[in-house]
Nucleic acid binder design. Sequence first.
DNA 1: CGAAACCTGA
Length: 452
Amino acid sequence: EYVLPTLINMYAECGDTRSAHAMFGRVPDGDCVVSYNAMITAAVRSSRPGEALVLFREMQAKGLKPTPVTLTSVLSACALLGALELGRWIHEYVRKAGLDSLVKVNTALIDMYGKCGSLEDAIGVFQGMESIDRQAWSVMIVAYANHSYGREAISLFEEMRKQGIKPDAVTFLGLLYACSHSGMVSEGLQYFDSMREYGIVPGIKHYGCVTDLLARSGQLEKAYKFIDELPIKPTAILWRTLLSACGSHGAVDLGKRVFERILELDDTHGGDYVIYSNLCANTGEWEEMNRVRKLMNEKGVVKVPGCSSIEIDNRVHEFFAGDARHPHARRMVDQVIEQLKLVGYVPNTSQVFHVEMGEEEKATSLRYHSEKLAISFGLLNTSPGTTLRVVKNLRVCPDCHSMAKLVSMLFNRQIILRDLNRFHHFEDGVCSCGDYCLKSYCKCSSYKSWYG
DNA sequence: CGAAACCTGA
């Protein structure tokens, strides 16, 4: 019976979750895998990976056997969450079920490993594939890009070309992304220009990568001009990319111009106000900072708190900035403070004092940073011998860097930090992407105040 | 019913 699943999918695609659920509820008992697949796919597509996993567990509890479709969708959910352990479990299942020859399943596995921080496993799956299609090549290039391995991404691209596989728009995104995150400006621009030879028309995301390429490397004015002269209307995202680079390069004058441009397009995005007001604070423009803070309050912007997540015993726990109520967060904060004391790395006592004194604002900030630290430690305190943990959304700054150094000395482990989009590998306290990530990617003033 | 895709902070 394929009518219900098709209806579920239709409703989900139109964004009508309620009707989709209603349809799902009408599926008779003993129900079909296909309906579950439709629901899981819908959840993943609308960025609700947690819901997808709940459905998956429910389905297993009913004794329904996952199909390749289920597995690819669930792997995609794992990728979104950074749920490496669950992803490995699925991989094991795939092997046992003899599904490891399916290109789509393998592609989903590569993507999952890439997004969950295990590049080695991604490479392992890639190399074990009998036939590799365009999408699998692209996903592997994106995985290298996310891990800041620009050279490797490029050589994979060249290899792909040699084998006569035609790159598509996504392949180029991965390639440009790799270049911008490895500081390979001229290479990136060259590849951007070569897109036409493949008959690919650059889209807004390609322009976004080039903006990032120029801006991150400090060519801020050039980036401004680039956006301004685009053949298509730039989105707020493009300007935001530039604004963030102005932030890391301390370019407050250009930052102001860019900020104005953003407000023309979208004045509801809280992050823009925060980036710009921080830039003002870092460059001593106090009046301007106050003006922006006020503006932000007047506009009633959407504030989405920063979120980090960790995986313990196959469950992913999410932590939001300023929220220390989560039992794991609480426990880890205490653990971290203990650990810090043990190695003589004592948190600034006056800040701890602020917590006791109940100065809300400062206490929140301490909790925020403690959580980030707690997460690093919490992860590293799990089973010895594992070298890999995933920390999502952790900003990298020199202080985190020294944190990483401390941790890798203490536990003799390799650690991997994942910030929003990419991974930093620290071994013996040294990041694999060299100075580049630290020089141009950090916004450390706020962290400094805590570590002293 | 199936996989990839630009930016981001207190």
